[in-house]
């Protein structure tokens, strides 16, 4: 039987695709030069999908048509950054991860007199409030400080408000129980009309701040860093940079928590960390990163 032969056509579409790749490079350069956001280290396929979606939402035909708009409409910058970041989470998303944090990490955190937690890429704050609740239930809230950072200013504002749609409550509740919550989730929010407002006390130990993992440096001396489902959007060199940044930011023995499908196995700095719970992607800094 013959081997299968692919067709040789598709020429017009192929050159359109090559041109689009070049235009995407120009778009990324323009965004960096005009607004200082550098997306050149982002994983390409998914960045391209999001830029195409941006073009479609702004009702322009091609990626290239976005370039004059990003140059001459300064107000558009926020919209662009919002489109290019992927803020999707839930309270206690992946509850088994939070259960593991409660069991394996909180007792160690309790041994430090002061606890700095950095959540890098906090989006709309779901995980910040999950952390705040867990620290409270473990009796650690009073000596904890959570730094929650993101590049998406709009998301940061929303996160600081701590308001979520009531339609998400059923998921939040079941996550909270599966994560080993010791009270009732309703202790931590007020429900008004279709909205849940997280209790103000939870936000007292949280500082929200703009920070860009691509360009900014060490943010704080942290005992634990959560950065879940952020590295998947970065190419390997940028992943390496950020993992090194985390290694530089953690105290010795500090914890790093990644998304459940994010792995250190391809990282240059993998040997700086030892696994605490491989399944939940919880790691511990065992030595400093080399330069």
């Amino acid at each position: 039987m013959n081997g299968f032969q692919p067709r040789g056509d598709g020429g017009g579409e192929l050159s359109a695709l090559d041109l689009e790749e070049q235009v995407l490079d120009v778009f990324v350069q323009a965004l960096r030069i005009r607004h200082g956001y550098d997306f050149s280290g982002y994983a390409r396929a998914s960045l391209k999908r999001r830029v195409r979606q941006l073009a479609s939402d702004l009702e322009v035909a091609r990626i290239g048509d976005l370039i004059p708009r990003l140059l001459y409409e300064p107000a558009l910058c926020d919209t662009i950054i919002e489109h290019l970041s992927v803020p999707v989470s839930d309270l206690f998303r992946d509850p088994w991860v939070f259960a593991s944090l409660r069991e394996k990490v909180m007792p160690v955190l309790a041994s430090w007199p002061r606890i700095n937690v950095w959540q890098a890429g906090c989006a709309y704050g779901e995980e910040v409030f999950s952390l705040a609740i867990m620290l409270f239930e473990c009796g650690l809230a009073r000596r904890s400080q959570i730094y929650a950072t993101d590049i998406n200013d709009h998301a940061l504002e929303k996160a600081a408000e701590g308001i979520f749609g009531v339609e998400r409550l059923a998921d939040f509740e079941s996550n909270y129980r599966a994560a080993g919550g010791t009270a009732a989730l309703s202790d931590y929010y007020h429900a008004r009309y279709a909205l849940l407002r997280m209790r103000r006390e939870l936000g007292e130990r949280v500082t929200f701040a703009h920070h860009n993992l691509v360009t900014d440096g060490v943010f704080a001396e942290a005992h634990m860093i959560l950065c879940r489902n952020v590295l998947i959007y970065f190419s390997q060199p940028l992943k390496d940079r950020v993992v090194k940044l985390f290694a530089d930011s953690l105290v010795h023995g500090g914890f790093l928590v990644l998304g459940d499908k994010e792995t250190l196995q391809f990282s240059r700095y993998a040997d700086c960390f030892s696994p605490v719970d491989e399944q939940a992607r919880i790691y511990r800094l065992r030595r400093r990163a080399h330069a």
Partner: peptide
Amino acid sequence: APGGYHLLVERKARFALCAGQ
């Protein structure tokens, strides 16, 4: 493809995941 993420393949034939909508 694992559940809960979109699976993409990059130009240089590497996998990438996306946790978007």
